[in-house]
Simulated assay, not measured.
Amino acid sequence: MSMTLMSLRAPCTGLCLALACLPVLAQAPEIRREPYPPQAVGSAHTIRIIPETCAYLRGMFTTDPAVPYRYGASKTAGRCQPRARLVDPAKAMPSAAKGWILNDEVRIPQAGCPSRTAVIRIWRKPIDTKAPLDGRGQARIYLQDAKQQAQSGAVAKLPEYAAVLEMVGQGCGGAAG
Rank of each mutant, 00 (worst) to 15 (best):
E30N: 12
I31K: 05
R33D: 14
Y36I: 09
P38M: 06
P38H: 04
A40L: 04
A40E: 12
A40F: 01
G42E: 07
G42D: 09
S43V: 12
S43Y: 14
A44Q: 13
A44H: 11
H45I: 13
H45F: 14
H45L: 09
T46D: 07
T46H: 05
I47Q: 00
I47K: 00
R48I: 08
I50T: 07
P51A: 02
P51S: 09
E52Y: 00
T53N: 08
C54Y: 05
L57C: 05
R58G: 11
G59W: 05
G59H: 02
M60N: 11
P65Y: 04
P65Q: 07
G72H: 04
G72P: 12
S74H: 08
K75A: 14
T76F: 00
A77I: 02
R79D: 08
R79C: 06
R79Y: 12
C80Y: 02
A84Q: 04
L86W: 05
L86A: 02
V87H: 02
V87Y: 01
D88E: 04
D88V: 03
D88M: 01
A90T: 13
A90F: 02
K91C: 06
K91G: 02
K91M: 11
M93L: 14
P94S: 04
A96Y: 03
A96M: 05
K98S: 12
W100P: 00
W100H: 01
I101S: 09
I101T: 14
L102E: 10
D104A: 14
E105H: 01
I108L: 03
Q110I: 05
Q110D: 02
A111P: 08
P114N: 00
S115A: 08
A118H: 07
V119H: 02
I120R: 03
R121D: 13
I122Y: 01
W123M: 02
W123E: 01
K125S: 09
K125I: 07
I127G: 01
D128S: 04
D128V: 14
K130L: 15
A131R: 14
Q138F: 11
R140C: 09
I141N: 06
I141M: 10
Y142R: 12
L143Y: 12
D145A: 13
A146M: 08
K147G: 04
Q149A: 14
A150K: 12
A150C: 11
Q151A: 13
G153V: 13
G153N: 03
